[in-house]
Structure formats: C-alpha cells, structure tokens
Design a protein around this nucleic acid. Structure first.
Length: 564
RNA sequence: AGCCUGGUGGUGUAACGGUAGCACGACAGAUUCUGGUUCUGUUUGUCGGGGUUCGAAUCCCUGCCGGGCUGCCA
C-alpha cells in the first residue's frame, strides 16, 4: 500500500489555466482558489456557456475552492428574473452546485461609493458629451482620441455632478461618468471608458431605486474582488478588458483577482450567439428556447441529452487560447457513448410496413422475453407480444435488393429480433405501386433466434406486434443549419445573406404513425430509450398528458446507409 | 489600417531547446440475435521563408492566415 503511494505516477499534462493557478498558489499570490460563473440574466444558457461553467466549477473543485454563481445584472433593459430561474435550473441540471449566489445589483451602493472615490482621486469625471460626440472623439483603430472638454473639471464639481446624476437631476443619456485614463491608448477600452450611465429603467431586483447603472467594466472586476474571487476565468473576448479590470482594482486599492481568458468554441451546423438564438425564437424559426434543435441547455435537455454527455464533451474539447471549431458529431458521439451504457433497449417502428405471417396461427399470441440491455444484465428483461400481424420498418424491405442488403426481400430470410426467422413470399402493392404489405412465412423451429440445423441469417430486424402496438408520434431532429458555418462571408453579407439563409428546412421531420411495443406505454418522461437499430429517444417533456410523442435525440451510428 | 491574440494529422489537444504523443473521426479486419456495441490494426501533422543552436513545434526576425477590439451591451 505505502509503496504504491511512493510510486511516481506519470503526471498528467496541465493546461495553461492550471499552470497559472499552480504558479499563483506557489508564489503565494493567492492562498486558495475561488472562481465564479457570471452570466447576464438576459437569455438562456447554451452549450458554449457549458464550457465556461465546467471550467470555473472544475477548477474550483480541483483546487478544493469555491464557486459563486453571479448574475451580472447591470443592464436593466434586457434582464429578467425569469432568466435567473432558467440559469439556476440549467446549471443544477448540469450537475453543479455553487457555493453562493450573488447579484451585481447587490453591489450597486458599494460600486457607487467606489466611483466617488475615483472622482475624489481625480481618476474619474462627469462628461456632458453626447453619445455621438463621444464616439467621434474616441478616435478609431488607427487614430488616437481627443480629450473631452469636460475632462478637466475639478473633483468637487465632478462629485457634485455625479451626486446629482444619482439624484435624478439629469436627463437619460445627458451625462456620463468616465474613467480618466488615456485617450491615446492603443487599447480602446482605456480611452476614458464609461463607468456609469443615466438610465431610468426599472430593474428587476432594485426596482426604481437607481437611475444610474454601472457598466460591465466598472462592475465586473470589483464584484470579483468583493467576493474574493482569485481566478476570474472568462472567454477571450475580455482579453482587451483586462488592463481596465486591473486598473480599477489598483486605483481602488482593493483585493485584486486574476483574470485569465480562454477560447470559446464554435459548433458546426449551429449558431451560438444570444442575439441569434433570441432572433430565431422571436421569429418563430424554432419553437422556443427549449426547442430540441437549439444548442441551449434546456433545448438539449428536451432533446434527450444527458448532463454527463455535455460535461464529458466539455472535457473532451479541452481548453486553450486557440479558436476552436468543433464538429457537432463530437457532441453526438459523447452522447452516444454515455447512452450506450444507460439507455434501456426497446423495439419501435418509425415508418411501419405491415407484415402478415401466413403460416402463423390466426389468434395466437406468444409472449417473448427480451433483454433490456445487451451486456448489462441489471437492466433486466421485459415481455414482448408476438402475433400473426406485425409491423416492420419500411427501410427493412427492398424489392430489388443488392447483395449486401442484409434485410428482407422477396425470397430472403431474416431474423425477427428475439423471435423467429421469416422469409418474404410476396409484396402487395396499392394502385400507385407502393408496397403496403408483406406476406411472409416463418420457421416454427427458429424460435428464440436460431434453428436446429444451425443455418445462419445475416440480418436481424426489429418489429412490433400490430394488435398490441402503441401509436405514437416521433419527432426526428436534425442539425438546424445546412452549412458548417451558417455565418455568411463578408461578400455574401453584402448581397444580403444572413445566417438564416442556411436554416435547414428538414431539421424537423414528424412521423405521425410510429408503432411502439406496449412496454413503452408507461414510459416516464425521464428515461432515454434506445429504439433498437434506430437511435436514442426520449418522451417529449412538453407533450400533453398522455400524449405519446418521442423526440429522437440522435440516431445510432450507421455504417450501412453511409455506404449506400 | 493600428493594437491585442493565436496558428501541431480531418478535428481537438500534448510535448515548455533533446524520440512529435494522446483522443475523436476515417479506413481495414475480428466478434455480434442491433449494419449498434466491443476488440485489433492502419492512416494522416509542427503555416511559409530566414536565423540562433550540436540539436528548434519550442527562442529570434519576417511574411501569410484566423480570432478579438472603434456600445452610454455584457
């Protein structure tokens, strides 16, 4: 035992954030680790957020530290309690527990006091420039900005003005509090950035108490600081804000967390910006935030994704500073890997084709015992009725079948899973030439899936007894977009193209008359099933009471149709 | 255009001046009462050009390409 401990295990490679934290702990800059996840409650969390959630929660866990959930609610215009609840629900569903729930709005008074301090120290001033003037004087990417004419106001005057701003003595947008830094800075964020704006807007938590609201840059770092966050792990877009984050902490002389940025990822055949997701919801391109095609966590949940699969995915794609393009297959593979071990197997027919077994006794019903999982016996067994009239999958019959088609065709024999071998004798067609029924014979000696003569059949297909079948509707979901990157190029944009032009018109196919084995009649809303040979399915959580609607989470891997 | 930042097989990620490795995918074979699963094997890479060095994915210069930045959004 003791020797084992002494054995040097090959150290796992550590990503740049772990290395940074290791160094901070070693140098004594921080004694312990605390992180935070700081969403703005103005929309629902999506798979991209899941990565940020995993990074912050996992780092805290790894270093035995704490994590705060902080609502970054500094813009009353867009935020709502409704979103707060959604965020809590989604993070909990992912399986994470935060140590403390915080709101930036709880810090408004303290932030205000700090703003006064900055004014007194000559580090902030009230500016009367209009938004347009301010934009113009900020300069641009190549040219420095010019100082505001109000930049040299005295501390006393600034303080008085700022207090009047708070007291509501000025019109919305007529004045603004700015940090006095450097209008010539190559970093735009340092060109006297806005700290407070006047905005008479009802805030969902502070009501009408305030008419001035702090900007992100003036709220975020200090919020981290107040909460004792050691490592503020965020995405790369905030890299240019770090100097400002640091500047405020230094000028205020407060606890100074370290911000570290990592790359977000893009998912192929999907979009991830809140703006676009909101637009798709509002314009009715999808059913809502929780439409099973959406990359939102609530959408993925309704689609049938497991929390584990999403967490594994986040671990899987790793963490770096390089822009990641992740193939959506990768997410699906994580799901399949997880569900392979978790999903009980059942039989269901999506597109039914009637089969009559002509030599099977008319009124006979046999009860067949089927395994609920091919390798894990703890799933147990269930009983499946078998009778003369069945449904099989339309895809499992082909009239002029190629040699490698291991399914049913005239004169060919297949195994009905768990039941008998059948041979197709005849295909009955309707007036339009569509095959509507198959007449087959069965080998009574093949019960259980093998025969005394030991002959082998290449194919095994699933089936449902017609008389016992449960009718159901199945929603087949596919990727929302037809393009790997739905975002049009600049030249395409000039022609008026938008990401919406890449919407996949076949992202939802509804199958109205699926047939399920009777076992599924009482399926609960939480269980993800594998419909054998088809894929993974879950009951739609939004279906009306008693309504049988299944959502296909993902299909099984398929090395046959790919070739064909 | 300026500043910041990044570039390793198809994808993602290691290697921190000393054997380019891992995962996923793809492909091939074996097993299989799911064309699934599982197992085995194969394949493909340091953005280009210079330099420093005994030795460069790694350090330097330069070019090219990608991402971010010109909100009183976060």
């Amino acid at each position: 035992m003791e020797e084992n401990i002494a054995v040097e295990t090959k150290s796992e490679s550590r990503h740049f954030i772990q290395q940074a934290i290791d160094a901070d702990l070693a140098s004594g800059r921080f004694q312990s680790v605390q992180t935070r996840f700081p969403p703005e409650p103005n929309g629902y969390l999506h798979i991209g957020h899941a990565k940020a959630i995993c990074v912050n929660f996992e780092m805290a866990r790894e270093y035995k530290g704490k994590v705060n959930l902080r609502m970054d609610d500094t813009n009353p215009l867009k935020e709502d309690m409704h979103y707060v609840e959604g965020i809590r629900r989604d993070i909990s569903w992912l399986g994470f527990k935060w140590d403390r729930e915080c709101f930036a709005s709880d810090y408004y008074e303290q932030l205000y006091q700090w703003a006064e301090k900055l004014i007194l120290d000559g580090n902030a001033y009230v500016c009367d420039l209009t938004p347009e003037e301010m934009r113009r004087m900020r300069g641009n990417l190549t040219e420095p900005g010019e100082n505001s004419p109000f930049r040299s106001r005295s501390a006393e005057e600034n303080l008085e003005l700022f207090r009047k701003m708070r007291a509501g003595e000025f019109e919305d947008g007529s004045k603004i509090l700015r940090a006095k830094i450097d209008m010539a800075s190559p970093n735009m964020n340092m060109r006297d950035p806005a700290m407070y704006r006047i905005q008479r807007e009802h805030h969902f938590r502070t009501g009408d108490k305030w008419c001035i609201y702090p900007m992100y840059d003036f709220a975020h770092g200090q919020s981290d600081s107040m909460e004792g966050v050691s490592h503020s792990l965020c995405s790369l877009e905030f890299e240019d804000h770090r100097p400002l984050y640091d500047w405020f902490c230094e000028k205020l002389g407060i606890f100074h967390p370290r911000q570290i940025e990592f790359a977000r990822f893009n998912l192929s055949y999907s979009v991830m910006s809140k703006r676009k997701l909101l637009e798709m919801v509002n314009e009715g391109h999808v059913d809502g935030w929780d439409d099973p095609r959406m990359p939102t966590l609530c959408g993925l949940r309704r689609r049938g994704y497991t929390p584990d699969s999403i967490r594994n995915f986040c671990t899987d794609i790793g963490i770096s500073k390089r822009g990641q393009w992740i193939d959506i297959d990768r997410l699906e593979n994580c799901l399949r890997k997880d569900l392979e071990n978790k999903a009980p197997r059942v039989m269901a027919v999506q597109r039914p084709l009637k089969v009559t077994i002509k030599n099977y006794p008319e009124d006979q019903v046999e009860v067949i015992t089927a395994n609920n999982h091919p390798t894990d016996e703890s799933f147990g067994t269930r009983e499946v009725p078998f009778s003369k009239t069945l449904y099989i999958e339309q895809d499992d019959f082909m009239e002029d079948a190629p040699k490698k088609f291991f399914r049913l065709s005239i004169g060919r024999e297949v195994r009905l899973r768990y039941a008998y071998y059948i041979t197709c004798e005849e295909a009955i067609k309707d007036a339009d030439g569509n095959i509507v029924e198959l007449i087959c014979t069965y080998d009574p000696e093949s019960k259980g899936g093998s025969t005394p003569d030991g002959r082998r059949v290449k194919g095994t297909i699933h089936w449902v007894s017609a008389a016992h079948a449960v009718d159901a509707k199945i929603n087949l979901y596919d990727r929302l977009f037809t393009l790997e990157n739905p975002e049009p190029s600049n030249t395409q944009k000039k022609k008026g193209k938008t990401y919406l032009d890449a919407l996949n018109s076949e992202s939802l196919v509804v199958l109205e008359d699926a047939k399920l084995e009777p076992f599924l009649k009482d399926a609960d809303l939480e269980t993800r099933f594998q419909f054998e040979r088809l894929g993974y399915y879950i009951r739609d959580s939004k279906a009306a009471e008693g309504e049988m609607i299944f959502n296909r989470t993902t299909s099984l891997r398929d090395s046959w149709t790919k070739k064909g």
